[in-house]
Amino acid sequence: MTGTRPPGAGLSVEAEVVRGPFTLRAAVTAAAGEVVAVLGPNGSGKSTLLGALAGLVPLSAGRVTLDGSVFDDATDGTFVEAAQRPVGFVFQDYRLFPHLSVLDNVAFSPHVRGMSRGAARAVAAGWLDRLGLAELARRRPDRLSGGQAQRVALARALAGDPSLLLLDEPLSALDARTRLDVQTELRTHLADFPGPCLLVTHDPLEALVLADRLVVLEEGRVVQEGSPAEVARRPATEYVARLVGLNLYPGTADGPTVTLEAGGRSSCPTTRSAGRCSSPCGPRPSPSAPLRRRPPARATPGRRPSRG
């Protein structure tokens, strides 16, 4: 879906996961070095998607491949267990082992993947150094602040030398102030990661800042996909419009002019054809400065945003 790249490279997912009454059906790709944010409300299936990629949840149908090798294929029954997948997972609640020091938490993956304890600790120390956590090496996780724990969780995921990085709501457990610091830093680290990176969030700001591309998930389906700028400019659903701070007004387009059903007119430069359409109205976060979130504009006519 994105540009041209050698076939088989990067992550390719066609997932269907049935969990009781809920069904996730989503196709997502991510190229090497690309950061894809899966954005969606609670219950949209984001975490299920990550679980399927990590091997914590098997697919009901579909296929997951990374760089050409099959992780899960429901048609022929192929399944690679979570422990065998070269995946780094940063959990929303971090899940740092409470009985191990920070150093041993980060050394866990290299150690269980075959390195001697000493070598694994050396690798871990390298990562702690790189993420500016060296002085925390001896601490227990319960003595860390939220921001520190988040960084340690990232270091632990990276220390296993994964080919795919998965982050589940990486910043949601942080207070607003810490979040900004960690966010900036996280962007740098994600940019350094050579493989594909999938990050799940319900926070549009987080997605806009961290990701190269957005995939919007609603009720288990992908409703929109594109660069942050595209998604912000042309929100496909009410949910997306609200996320990016836009209201959608149903109306009838005649060239660039849209006659709104609720009365009034709006100009809509992106509308190319005539007919029914939704006109976005409100502040548009420009791709270069997406850092400030604004409340949705409330124009007098058509106060209720509706689906386009």
Binding site: A54, A83, Q84, R85, G88, R95, F97, S109, V112
Partner: peptide
């Protein structure tokens, strides 16, 4: 959750 985390780390 800790056991899941350990599995994703290769254990």
């Amino acid at each position: 959750g800790y056991e899941e985390a350990a599995a994703t780390l290769g254990a």
